[in-house]
Design a binder for these strands. Sequence first.
DNA 1: CGTCGCGTTGACAAGGTTCAAATTTGGTGG
DNA 2: CCACCAAATTTGAACCTTGTCAACGCGACG
Lengths: 205, 205
Amino acid sequence: MPIKVLHSADRRLDALANKCVYSSALKFGKGTELFRERGEAEYAYQVICGAVRTYRLLSDGRRQINSFHLVGDIFGLENGATHRFTADAIVDTEVRVIRRRSLLDAMTNEDGGVNNLLGLITLNLVHAENHMVLLGRKNAFEKVATFLLEMDQRQAQPDKIHLPMSRRDIADYLGLKLETVSRALSKMRDERMLRIDGVRAGNSS
Amino acid sequence: MPIKVLHSADRRLDALANKCVYSSALKFGKGTELFRERGEAEYAYQVICGAVRTYRLLSDGRRQINSFHLVGDIFGLENGATHRFTADAIVDTEVRVIRRRSLLDAMTNEDGGVNNLLGLITLNLVHAENHMVLLGRKNAFEKVATFLLEMDQRQAQPDKIHLPMSRRDIADYLGLKLETVSRALSKMRDERMLRIDGVRAGNSS
DNA sequence: CGTCGCGTTGACAAGGTTCAAATTTGGTGG
DNA sequence: CCACCAAATTTGAACCTTGTCAACGCGACG
């Protein structure tokens, strides 16, 4: 699964990011905006704790969430000069902020040459390609199931999936309405595929 | 619009590709496969004439078309070792085939350094991101309208849109069924938004 | 001239959305 | 610790968009 790869790549960048002189930690309260679509992409970010969503809005308010960024994930590093998404904190979140230039320089000087930036963008592309299949060709139940698998594989925990985001967030990620997401989860619960724990969901499979 | 950018980038690569020693032209009959998902990504391709679709299949046959490649477009150049999509010719198609290695070398020696490969992948990413919004948050009519605008902007012609692909291809690109695409086009015709010409569609706007 | 692939159209079914209400959860203050 | 409130979630019922199934038309081609 691409998500695994994304993680291992992030670990590499993790070590790399730690060496950056010009990185600093910042806190963002729940719902706070980190950067905005079309805004200058001066910094890249890495989640220290918490979770971030990146999304795009249509003029009438419809929202498509591009991805969720969990602990360790790097995001907001653009090839161009501006951000293509808005990013905000799903819960109270702490991020490491790195000057774009500084991170790029560190990357080119490290092991894979410029391959790290290229690799990071390629991972985004792979994720987007997989997500297009989900959005275009899967039904509601499959979408939610795929989402849970993705979240499970991105987390170390064996039998639990922690979902920091709301039903609405999940819906806007999967191209559904929040009620539909809720119904799918209820159905899985009724069919003993999982247990829902208020803040946590444990899959019994 | 990203499509414009994609085109101008392709023009750059066009010139570049022309300099490649190890490129050769190949013909593929309608419906023929150029490469397959998971297959070794030894070559990159550029459409000389005709059109190509790249897509992914679910195990039960559902198909998500990732993109259509028209004259001038470069595709099939992967960062990794294997293709992530299957590609086949929509109509009888002629492509320039370039050894991956050869193209990459030419790229690193050219103007923007490795930026050309990075730029190409970034353009794919931008396209995918836009397409996710379409797939996740637009209704059938909006999807078809957006598709027609995309095709229009990718073609030089002022008032006509040539659609080499079938209704089924369009549907699998937009996350719809072919009947729904047909109905949307009929509605646009009925509302005088366009004229349908058998093989061609001209937009009156 | 018959067949085949493709596109259009109609009638109906179904999955997902919408709207509304009930219920649970989490936070806050007494 | 408990009561209360706001927000999030769940659930139900009606509705609508899109999918499904089927018939028909058209042009290409043998």
